[in-house]
Amino acid sequence: MTYNFAFLDEDTKRMLRRALLKAVAIPGYQVPFGSREMPLPYGWGTGGIQVTAALLGPDDVLKVIDQGADDTTNAVNIRRFFSRVAGVATTEHTADATLIQTRHRIPETSLREDQILVFQVPEPEPLRTLEPREAETRTLHALADYGLMHVKLYEDIAQYGHIATSYDYPVLVDGRFLTSPSPIPKFDNPKLDRSPALMLFGAGREKRLYAIPPYTRVESLAFDDHPFEIQRWEHQCELCGSGESYLDEVVVDDRGTRMFVCSDTDFCSGRRVEAQA
């Protein structure tokens, strides 16, 4: 038997597109949707895959990254899936892609207006660890009652002297909705602010979609006297020499020797090719 283009039937795609339009119309608002069971486990990108499946056309060029890299197994598997069920062209080059599905990173290369970034989201509710009841968190969002989130940040500073949230750092979208940026490192948060590319977020297991439309104001929560800060390294990438990318720490021998390299593999290899030319 054969599957429909991009696996999902057209009715389901329409349902997803409607939900996505709503998400774009209300930036940062979590739109409940009839998440389908995908041939990939929940928690492995089922939300992202459904969004991608609803958007893909035959002319799209798809890039899939996990942890910034195109060659991690889950990224490979999702790319393989869409090659198989949609037959679309794939790429590892950020600049060549029309649609990028990502888990846990935003590419270092600046995105453009004609690109869409699709995030895989494990937990769309930024208040979940503070308030487990869904009925209550929805009310808090409806009333923009976000004092609770600041309690958490306050507590961090009281305990550690600074805000000890290093990834999935909560943001306020368009001055209205408290939103999870998905578990990207806070290093990537500034890339969300006024991004030219449309950013879509899919949480399959939790059955929620949300969006940050192009050029939307995205503010990382902080206190006036404890402003938001991103990670910094004392190292540069040992492969390409970049001093402004997010670095992975790699253990290279049994004695625990470390080296630091770019997490964004396409960005890193692009810089190396440039340097050789």
Binding site: D145, Y146, G147, L148, H150, V151, K152, Y154, E155, I157, A158, A222, F223, D224, D225, H226
Partner: peptide
């Protein structure tokens, strides 16, 4: 959460965003 966070919560809910002041 700590005693301080308990006292500061309502202030933060009203929009106070200065940690030292809180």
């Amino acid at each position: 959460v700590s005693a301080g966070a308990n006292v500061a919560e309502r202030l933060m809910a009203l929009g106070m965003r200065n940690y030292s002041q809180l």
